[in-house]
Each structure stands twice: as structure tokens, then as C-alpha cells.
């Protein structure tokens, strides 16, 4: 009987998280009536993540270009550098790396904030003031995460492929022809790739926001509980991103 406990606890957690998600979804229409609260949250999960997203996007694009060039130039295919960078970024690295960064930057902030609000009785206080904390606190944060993630992924990819990333290294530094950098990308990619990127990032955004608000809302109301909630947010969402990425990739590129 005893050895079953972790398994049953896990199942219980999953069930609780699912019910929690349903509660949030039910609260979303009400929350949408108050866009100001959502805007506030988009600022804290979106705008405040912008710097890290732009910088990492540029560096990842630059590294990909450097590494890719060394390999491609051996086959006389250096003109395909753009394709290499763009395909890797749009299909995989953009959504996945942005997701991991987003979980670390915005997910933990969400979980810690909600956990602290719980620990300091702010959520209970709201409830006693007849204000539903799911509608007032949780749903706007959840919606903001959902909106911010695809935008951040697009900005990340744009930085990595164009402006400062692969293009800067490949074209400006290594001397790949600017025209063929882009035309090669044009030839091997199409609108579907961008659509898939947006689908992936929306799914990741949902997973991260869900995990973060769940961990915060169900944190033990102590400082240890809050720190555990932030840690679990990073661990669980990173694993979820990687697992979901595999599943989505398997579906998209059959």
C-alpha cells in the first residue's frame, strides 16, 4: 500500500492541475472584460523578458552561423548557411530556447508572486472580500503568458536569423552573399514553417503559464513552499517544453 503513495500522489497532482486549468479557462471570459489587468501582466511577463530574449536570440543565431559555416564550407555549400540557421531557429531553437528562458524569467516570477500572495493571506483576503482570486489574479496572468510567448518567440527568431544573429555573422563577417542568404531561406521554407512555429510557441506558452500559476497557487504558504514552487516551475516546465516539442515535431514533420 505504501509504495503506491508516490504514484497516487502524482495522479492526484495531475488531476488537481487539470481541474485548476478548467477553473482558469472558465474564468477567462470574465477576465477579458478587464483588459487593464491583462496589459499590466503582459508588461511584467513580456516587456521585462524582452532584453534576455533579444540578447540570447542574437547570440544563438551567431553561434549557429559560425558552426554551420565551418561545416558547410567543406562541402562548398556556404550559401546554404541561411537555410541552416533559419530552419534550426524557426523549427526548433526559437520556440524551445525561448520557452526555457520564458520559464526561467517569467514563469518563476509568476509562481513566486502568486505563492507569496498566498503566504501573506492576500489571496484569502481577496476571497473574503468576495473577489475571486482566480478571476482577479490568476486568469490575467495566464492570459498574458499565452499572448506573450508567441510574440517573444517571433522576436527571438527574427533576432537570430536576421538583424543581429546569423545574418550579421554569415553575411557581414564570413562573407556569404546577402542575396543567396535570403534566397536560399526563401527556397527551403514556407509559410507553414512560421505557422508551426507559432503553434509550438502557443502550446509552450500555455504549458508554462499553467504550470507557473498552478505551482504558485498550490504552494505551501511558507518561504520554503514558495521557493519550492519556483524551482518546480522551472523543472516541470522545462521538461514539459522538451516533451511537448518532441510530440509536436512528430506531428508537424511527418
Amino acid at each position: 500500500m505504501n509504495f503506491l503513495t508516490p504514484a497516487t500522489e502524482g495522479l492526484r497532482g495531475l488531476g488537481r492541475a487539470t481541474l485548476f486549468l478548467l477553473t482558469i479557462l472558465a474564468a477567462i471570459p470574465g477576465a477579458l472584460l478587464r483588459p487593464r489587468l491583462i496589459i499590466q501582466q503582459i508588461y511584467s511577463v513580456g516587456n521585462l523578458s524582452l532584453i534576455i530574449i533579444i540578447i540570447s536570440g542574437s547570440f544563438i543565431g551567431m553561434v549557429l552561423a559560425l558552426q554551420g559555416y565551418r561545416t558547410l564550407v567543406n562541402f562548398g555549400a556556404a550559401s546554404s548557411l541561411g537555410v541552416l540557421v533559419a530552419l534550426s531557429i524557426v523549427r526548433e531553437l526559437g520556440p524551445v530556447v525561448t520557452g526555457l528562458l520564458f520559464a526561467g524569467r517569467a514563469g518563476t516570477a509568476l509562481a513566486a508572486e502568486i505563492g507569496l500572495m498566498k503566504a501573506t493571506d492576500q489571496l484569502a483576503g481577496m476571497e473574503m472580500m468576495a473577489v475571486d482570486p482566480i478571476k482577479r489574479v490568476i486568469a490575467p496572468r495566464f492570459i498574458a503568458g499565452l499572448i506573450a510567448m508567441p510574440l517573444l518567440v517571433s522576436i527571438f527568431s527574427m533576432m537570430a536569423i536576421g538583424i543581429a544573429g546569423g545574418h550579421a555573422i554569415g553575411v557581414e563577417l564570413l562573407g556569404v552573399d546577402d542575396g543567396s542568404y535570403w534566397s536560399q531561406i526563401n527556397q527551403s521554407m514556407h509559410g507553414g514553417d512560421i505557422r508551426d512555429m507559432l503553434i509550438k510557441s502557443s502550446v509552450f506558452g500555455l504549458a508554462i503559464s499553467w504550470i507557473a500559476v498552478y505551482q504558485g497557487y498550490h504552494a505551501a504558504p511558507t518561504s520554503e513552499g514558495v521557493s519550492r514552487a519556483t524551482t518546480s516551475t522551472v523543472v516541470v516546465s522545462s521538461l514539459a517544453i522538451l516533451a511537448l516539442d518532441f510530440v509536436l515535431t512528430a506531428f508537424m514533420f511527418r
Binding site: 507569496l116 500572495m117 501573506t120 493571506d121 492576500q122 484569502a124 483576503g125 481577496m126
Partner: peptide, 9 residues
């Protein structure tokens, strides 16, 4: 009235 006040920080 909560012991901590429970003000929204």
C-alpha cells in the same frame, strides 16, 4: 481582518 492585514502589496 487578517492577522497580517493581507494588504495587496
Amino acid at each position: 481582518l487578517f492577522q497580517s492585514g493581507a494588504l495587496l502589496t
